[in-house]
Amino acid sequence: PEAADLRALARHLFRAYLKYFPLTKQPTRAILSGKTGDNAPCVIHDMKSLMEGEQFINCRQMPFQEQQQTSVLTAAHGGLTEVHMGSDYGVWGMTSISGQEPQNAVELRFFQSCQSRSAEAVREVTEFAKSIPGFTDLDLNDQVTLLKYGVIEVLIIMMSPLMNKDGTLISYGQIFMTREFLKSLRKPFCQMMEPKFEFSVKFNTLELDDSDMALFLACLILRGDRPGLLNVKPIEKLQETVLHSLELQLKLNHPDSLQLFAKLLQKMTDLRQIVTDHVHLIQLLKKTEVDMCLHPLLQEIMKDLY
């Protein structure tokens, strides 16, 4: 009966994962391996193709967009225009990239667009967290703490399937941006993605599927060692159950990968350093880029994080 309960939990979290995350691993890998035929992503590899990429997006309907979803975020922080994700605004943000625009501004605006998508992704992760049995029964302050400390780790894991050694899918899989192009941006923008590529290429060799990912993400959210938690015991109890479910899932789904569970536990530790470095880089950006506006939701999450 216990194993049956753990399997039921795995199925529940997998359904929630499919419901709340718009682009999961299976379709992503199909896009990256060129199995989507006519729907191949537009490739951005230099400034010219960056501008063409915007045109490409403006000509296509953005998938997975629901007005209801975007309105939650806009209402949440005073309706800043940058959080709108509708096709009227395009993937890059509020206006078109003009040929005369200084390169500095291009990088900054691209960064702002990444922030918009990240904020939307935080909302998706929040909904997923709320679907974890017992999560919404936790002290509300602890729910906030778990999300504050867990959400960037979750986003990095969700980003991994979008990446390969040569680049990353963005804009819901409609664009492939090359790693070399990202490395060619001016400092410190060029330093932002490289650590994520290094992590993701290794993480992808573990070959988790979407049902494994759902359980792993839930484990990342339910960590009893986040700073400032008020009531650790119920969180640890929840995490223990999800960890057992993950262990069983991996045994059944990857019978030949004997150390997979242990490797995933190690990845949980590795992620903390990547997040720390990321937050420090954002703090550096805030100091050096006078025109930069950090999204209010991301600001909340990163303030006093590490």
């Binding site: 529940h12 359904r15 929630a16 419901k19 709340y20 209801q68 979803q69 939650v72 975020l73 949440a76 922080h77 935080v122 909302r123 929040t126 909904e127 709320k130 679907s131 919404t136 509300l140 302050n141 729910q143 906030v144 703490t145 999300l147 504050k148 400032g228 209010p296 939701l297 909340e300 999450i301 303030k303």
Partner: peptide
């Protein structure tokens, strides 16, 4: 903590996307 994280708090409390799996 809730005061310092108003948007996160609101996302946690909002009921526009009920978990109706």
């Amino acid at each position: 903590l809730k005061e310092k994280h108003k948007i996160l708090h609101q996302l946690l409390q909002n009921s526009t996307s009920p978990v109706d799996l």
